[in-house]
Design a protein around this nucleic acid. Structure first.
Length: 560
RNA sequence: CGGGGCGUAGCGCAGUCUGGCUAGCGCACCUGCCUUGGGAGCAGGGGGUCGGAGGUUCAAAUCCUCUCGCCCCGACCA
């Protein structure tokens, strides 16, 4: 491809709207343009990257026996109503009506439609297993699209769905997908990890996420460097550092106007970890007092996993339900439902005394209050691993893929049944598996760039080699460039020839910005000695070689 | 949806508080000359409903009201 004829609108300056590094670089290097919030155009370079990623996806999916199909994006509401998601999903679903006033929606995922197909076509255990996938557009009316192509309202997704006759079959397909995902992300040159995740509204019991560490990531994972435990902080369990044992007698302490843990902590000169934080929430079955240690944060989702949807109590409600104003509440003597974090099982604590301007020192679980126990705090760096005790670290990550064991949630709802060996009718056991190609691209840029621009992993770069004839008015330079260009193409490489009539500096800057892995630099002076340079974009290393050695040198770089 | 910021040429911005000449600067773009190893130089040139609507005023990019859009933080996120 000739640079002069390819649409590569590079920018010298950073567009004001871009914040995330991948966003800035992909705009500047001419890979994408924004149409509206969360809607992106992929320009020729960007689309080449996506296609390279998709090719890897297809190879690896085909390799585990998955079959590519294509589903509509426009869906009838009826099927979504049958699984209950028409009602369960809120504003995030794009909804519309067709000309005959029939409710429709735009597909945000395809469990429903895939299961609908299975329900009509699969009759017998002999038809199973099946694994179907597609690489296709999803639409979600995100509350807040952000970070360029990391979170958009319309995006491509490789989604696959497995259909099995048994749990063992599901587990096999789940493992096959996990293995394929490892190969995919490795081939795409990403640093990544597989972590336990919360299945959320997808339903099902087991799920994992594939996470690429990056400061632009929206998620956080807790990682144990010792035993390998890793999980999204949404469900990561941890043990906060233990307190020194105290032999406090139960005693009321006057704490005038001191309400928050921080205030009382300063006042009593006692670290927050010796406090017991009481948080009253209102659930669907009434008020619940959540108890966490003073240095920990309550995790809403973990609590929701136990009591369901809930909201914080208002000040008036606190007084009405517990008989004391907020800031001085504590578990001792209260009779509402209590859920306490495991960290509070041992030791003595300071809590509110349920009496204005007083706190209680020496409160002990079992003696002074008897809650239900669970892990409801947010895991944070420095907490200990629940498996091995090693300190956990917490990292920001981009979610690049996920896998779910769905079970029979969708097959039961849509009557996707099969007859087993005994002639018994059973729901198909399903799994679903997703990867976002654009997120792979963005994560690759986040993880591979320098001050000059993008440094693409070879496997997903838009081109393998860029040729830079520095002076296109020099006949010898042009002829050499053309010869090398033709030769490399014949070798099967994707080659970009910067044939523009630009000064050398401009070509160097653009080449580094665009980030193609190798540059062949053709300058007049070297050429007089029959030499050209090959630059490795990643290391910055340059070697001079004879013109006729270029094909061999490039072959060597791509053979490995 | 809550909080904050921004909207002036393709991009980056100044001008807005304190209304007043023909709306300005850098880059990009076009023409010519020149130059060709890290975003050159000189000369000339094109490009603007100042996000939109309404209002105040002799006069509005600037003040007022409404509205649309984009970004960031939070909530949300199948």
């Amino acid at each position: 491809m000739r640079f002069s004829r390819m649409f590569i609108p590079t920018l010298r300056e950073v567009p004001a709207e871009a914040e995330a590094i991948s966003h800035v670089l992909m705009l500047r290097a001419g890979y994408v343009r924004q149409l509206a919030a969360g809607l992106y155009i992929f320009l020729p370079l960007g689309w080449r990257v996506i296609n390279k990623i998709n090719a890897v996806l297809k190879e690896e999916m085909d390799a585990i026996g998955a079959q590519e199909i294509s589903m509509p994006i426009l869906h009838p509401a009826e099927i979504w109503q049958q699984t209950g998601r028409w009602g369960a999903i809120g504003d995030e679903m794009f909804r519309l009506k067709d000309r005959s006033d029939r409710d429709m929606c735009l597909g945000m995922t395809h469990e429903e439609i895939m299961t609908w197909l299975a329900s009509r076509e699969i009759r017998s255990y002999r038809d199973l297993p099946q694994v179907w996938y597609q690489i296709q557009t999803k639409l979600r009316d995100e509350a807040r699209p952000k970070s360029g192509i990391l979170r958009t309202r319309e995006f491509l997704m490789k989604d696959s769905y497995s259909f099995d006759a048994s749990q063992e079959g599901l587990e096999t397909n789940y493992r096959l997908h996990a293995d394929a995902y490892h190969r995919i992300f490795e081939r795409c040159g990403l640093q990544f990890m597989m972590v336990q995740s919360d299945p959320g509204m997808m339903g099902g019991a087991v799920s994992h996420e594939f996470m690429a560490p990056s400061p632009s990531g929206e998620d956080e994972v807790a990682i144990c460097g010792n035993c390998g435990y890793s999980a999204n902080v949404e469900l990561a369990r941890s043990k906060p550092p233990q307190n020194e044992p105290q032999d406090w007698e139960l005693e009321e302490i006057h704490t005038p106007e001191k309400r928050t843990v921080q205030e009382v902590s300063n006042y009593l000169k006692l670290p927050p970890s010796f406090f017991l934080k009481s948080i009253l929430v209102i659930g669907s079955d009434g008020p619940v007092l959540a108890l966490v240690r003073g240095d920990q944060e309550l995790h809403e989702k973990k609590l929701a996993g136990i009591i369901g949807d809930h909201r914080p109590a208002q000040k008036a409600e606190v007084k009405e339900i517990l008989g004391v104003e907020a800031g001085f509440i504590g578990p001792a003597g209260q009779s509402v439902r209590m859920i306490a974090d495991n960290a509070l099982k041992d030791g003595a604590y300071v809590s509110g005394a349920n009496k204005p301007h007083y706190h209680l020192r020496g409160v002990r679980a079992g003696r002074d209050f008897s809650p239900e126990w669970s892990d409801i705090h947010t895991a944070k760096a420095g907490d200990s691993c629940v498996n091995c005790g090693n300190p956990l670290s917490v990292e920001k990550v981009i979610e690049i893929g996920n896998i779910f064991q769905l079970g029979t949630k969708y097959s039961s709802a849509l009557k996707a049944h099969f007859l087993d060996e005994n002639g018994e009718e059973k729901p198909i056991i399903m799994g679903s598996y997703g990867i976002g190609p654009a997120r792979i691209a963005a994560a690759a840029v986040e993880q591979n760039h320098d001050k000059d621009g993008i440094v693409w992993p070879v496997s997903i770069a838009p081109f393998d080699v860029e040729i830079l004839p520095l002076n296109v008015n020099d006949k010898n330079t042009v002829e050499t460039a053309e010869k090398i260009y033709t030769g490399l193409k014949e070798q099967g490489l994707d080659v970009l020839l910067d044939d523009r009539e630009e000064r050398a500096g401009v070509k160097f800057k653009d080449a580094d910005l665009i980030g193609i892995p190798f540059q062949v630099i053709i300058g007049e002076k070297n050429l007089k000695e029959g030499l050209v340079e090959i630059k490795d974009r990643k290391s910055g290393e340059t070697v001079k070689i004879k013109t006729e050695e270029v094909p061999e040198a490039m072959e060597g770089r791509f053979r490995s």
